[in-house]
Design a binder for these strands. Structure first.
Lengths: 166, 166
DNA sequence: ATCCATTCTTTCAAGTATAAAATACTTTCG
DNA sequence: CGAAAGTATTTTATACTTGAAAGAATGGAT
């Protein structure tokens, strides 16, 4: 079974000697760990300080950026979650008075939801704390590290989008 | 409202002029987006190719690394999810014959679960595909980028752990 | 030997999430 | 106009997840 060493380009080599991709796996694991650590810390602080869940905070954050409101489908796309999920989240936020519904001016299928004044006020308070928490959690990185990370993750993000949807 | 410029250390400045932390927020958003994009792509491929959910794959991946099996608590810690969550996942994997239970040799409170031969075989197949998918999704990064990212995320991870638990 | 804090698992309720099918509406084009 | 194609939302079913509480077992201290 011994073979003479042969020069091969990268693609051929990958077919002949299937790489174990160990490095990429470790990177993915670390990326996942970082995200999970931050996310669960934020989740528990939101609950402790404001009695709010992270998905609800995220939904309100999207609406804050659209003062005129947004359709459920638009919310679903921006939050990168399923339609049915958004329906349920909106229902609960309507009950608590943070959101209000309007008919879509042009499209009778669509519903537009927007923050109520109370919801907007509530979100403003939470967003301030949230930004400080994120900064605190990222404080281990020097400013140069932050921009390095932005750049590298930007490249990763656009490549993943290509692979996934392209 | 004009003020004479004053030299302040970082902490004082943060109190006087509460920073908006825009950069850190953008970094967090991008980190989250990258993770979610990859995760949902992997999730849908696992379902399409193997009819398996990501949580179940993750659980099997932990058990693969411990041929003698593992207690539920240990699984819960390594997967960074709640105890009750693991109980449910294990139940379903027992039903499908991928896992088996043994009493813990020394501790009667604990339950040890391990992959069955079928589970191990199944996981081996999936793990191979999974590693290739991750490598494909990371292919946008040069090898130097990968190690840069590893280093930067490593720093972030340890700092977050300190802030969260320390 | 008994108490007690801790650890391990299960259970429960509420909430979050997906996928797939169903329903309702709009636009386009014949 | 009216059918077809496409878009928007809801519904349904199932699965995942957490947080909290409860029960069983352990190990150490008295």
């Amino acid at each position: 079974m011994t073979e003479a060493p042969v020069l091969l380009d990268a693609e051929t080599r990958a077919h002949e000697h299937p790489a174990d991709h160990r490095t990429e796996l470790r990177l993915w694991l670390r990326l996942l760990t970082c995200t999970n650590l931050i996310e669960s810390e934020i989740r528990s602080r939101l609950r402790r300080h404001f009695g709010v869940t992270l998905p609800r905070f995220d939904l309100m954050a999207q609406l804050e950026k659209a003062p005129a409101g947004m359709t459920l489908g638009e919310l679903s796309r921006r939050m990168m979650v399923s339609n049915g999920n958004v329906t349920g989240l909106v229902e609960r936020l309507l009950e608590t008075g943070h959101l209000e519904r309007h008919p879509h001016p042009a499209d009778r299928r669509a519903v537009v939801v927007a923050l109520t004044p109370i919801g907007r006020q509530m979100f403003a308070t939470m967003a301030l704390a949230h930004a400080e928490w994120i900064a605190e959690l990222c404080a281990g990185l020097a400013p140069a590290d932050v921009s390095q990370l932005m750049r590298l993750l930007g490249g990763l993000k656009s490549h993943v989008k290509e692979v996934a949807h392209g």
